[in-house]
Design a protein around this nucleic acid. Structure first.
Length: 216
DNA sequence: TTCCCGATTTACT
DNA sequence: GTAAATCGGGAAA
């Protein structure tokens, strides 16, 4: 991995431990993921990544917006029932993959959706995958854009977050000055739970998604 | 088996 | 502002 600087290697070799994901407080884990380094080896074998700038918490069986509401198990959501520290990847709208971080203990189906990153490593690969000519928020701001830029597909489902294909690390992380909290995007079907303040992003960071249809 | 709809994005009119 | 792309989950028939 030439030409990516010391931070890339340091992050790759120092992933967050599994214990980071096991606490019974997915909201707190979601906020603390902001600024952390996310690195992914795409299907083509090329590494790319950057800093996590926007996330949403899906707070387990009592959260109506969560795929595992009421402990409902399906083929799709089985990754959420695993012990925290692996990826939950699923196909949305038949064409975009969503990347989630699974948290909490076995059979407690919590997850955190990665909605945006600030690109840092493998930018050429990301622009090629996204068919973009320059770096802009369109490259990686939005959950479908993140997975497309990083080369994530369903083959990353249930992948551990300490490698070999996905790594989340505090090494080289951004210092986060201020966090903005809002309701989640696109979960109107969850009725009263749609208003829960479970979306978090880094204030004043350009690489944050803008809701197409603002509802609040 | 049929049907509706989604944790989205993009390209139109 | 609105619609199309595209497919798997889950409820209904």
């Amino acid at each position: 991995m030439e030409g990516r600087g010391r931070c890339f290697t340091a992050a790759l070799k120092n992933p967050l431990p599994q214990s980071f994901y096991l606490k019974d407080d997915t909201i707190a884990i979601a906020k603390s993921l902001l600024g952390k380094v996310l690195l992914v080896r795409g299907e083509d074998g090329i590494w790319a990544g950057g800093w996590i700038t926007e996330v949403e918490a899906y707070n387990g069986a009592q959260d109506k917006a969560c795929h595992a509401y009421g402990y409902k198990r399906t083929q799709r959501n089985q990754a959420m029932f695993k012990r925290g520290g692996c990826a939950y990847v699923y196909l949305c709208y038949g064409m975009y993959y969503m990347l989630n971080v699974v948290t909490n203990e076995v059979d407690e189906p919590h997850a955190i959706l990665i909605r945006a990153i600030e690109p840092c490593w493998g930018i050429e690969a990301m622009m090629q995958r996204r068919k973009q000519k320059k770096v802009s928020p369109q490259l990686t701001a939005g959950p479908g854009r993140v997975t497309q830029a990083l080369g994530i597909t369903k083959q990353h489902n249930e992948a551990p977050l300490w490698g070999p294909d996905i790594v989340i690390s505090a090494k080289g992380a951004l210092k986060v000055e201020e966090v903005v909290t809002t309701p989640r995007i696109g979960v109107h079907y969850a009725k009263e739970d749609a208003l829960l303040p479970y979306r978090f992003y880094i204030k004043n960071n350009a690489f944050v998604s803008k809701p197409l249809y603002p509802k609040y």
